[in-house]
Design a protein around this nucleic acid. Structure first.
Lengths: 137, 137
DNA sequence: TATTAACTAGTAACGATTATTATTTAGGAA
DNA sequence: TTCCTAAATAATAATCGTTACTAGTTAATA
């Protein structure tokens, strides 16, 4: 995705398309490692040496609020981020601290269909968060 | 579950059955709110006024290592704990910061069966972590 | 181009968690 | 039972990811 598209994405979400926000969203969309704010900051510094770590945090928070970005909590002690593309799940290994996307439309359908029929008392599902813990081979 | 059973549980797991560990496990098993270490500490203080917060943290870590306790990460900024009984899922609302157990053997079977047939390349599942985000009514 | 609300940089502060260390204790051996 | 010792705890300092603060800057609109 090029810069124009990113700027449009931001504007559509009601956020000012600042250089910093474009840089953060761009960097996050380009990686598959689900970086922390700090990792993202270090990456962005190479292209944008004056950006502040606090800005990266604040930007991620703003992007999260408008739904362009998702925070992923794992067993590790910092938050990792995910540029939202489509519904997917995650594979995680705590020893390696490795986190990967897992796309599985079949499983997604199965779970979605399940909850179409089975309603939970006193709870309305907005989002399904599935993390598979295990070992990468 | 009474104290004797808790002590046995600890011994079976290879942990010394100290008063502190019994108190922590007992308190965690008695609640359904999935408390944080600090909340648990405050609860335990009433019965055990000399226990230290650091001990609660360390104890939870030990119990987690042997599989008697599970850490639950949510959108909120602290870790919540769960005395493991049987496989279950969680319902969570970020605004209310409310976290509840969700038992659903049907869904559990569906997912387990799904992964009996469908293997993920280069990944062996050890545990399935499902959080349903939504609104309590 | 001028205006201004929104945003950012730099840094201090916060708070959940972990590390440290002197003291205490659980559980096995004598 | 008493003794012994490795393991655990209490108290508190330190850590570190994240957030708050504030003076200065900028994107977007007229």
């Amino acid at each position: 995705m090029n810069k124009k598209d990113i700027i449009e994405k931001l504007n559509k979400s009601g956020l000012k398309a600042t250089h910093q926000r474009v840089a953060v969203l761009d960097a996050l969309m380009k990686t598959k490692t689900h970086p922390s704010a700090e990792e993202l900051y270090k990456t962005i510094l190479k292209q944008y040496p004056t950006i502040s770590l606090a800005t990266v945090y604040k930007t991620l928070e703003s992007l999260k609020e408008v739904g362009l970005v998702r925070a992923i909590k794992t067993d590790c002690d910092y938050v990792r981020y995910d540029a939202i593309t489509t519904n997917h799940f995650h594979l995680y290994n705590p020893e390696q601290n490795k986190l990967e996307d897992y796309y599985d439309n079949d499983l997604k359908s199965i779970i979605d269909n399940y909850f179409k029929n089975k309603k939970i008392d006193n709870f309305e599902i907005k989002e399904i968060n599935l993390q598979l813990i295990g070992e990468f081979k």
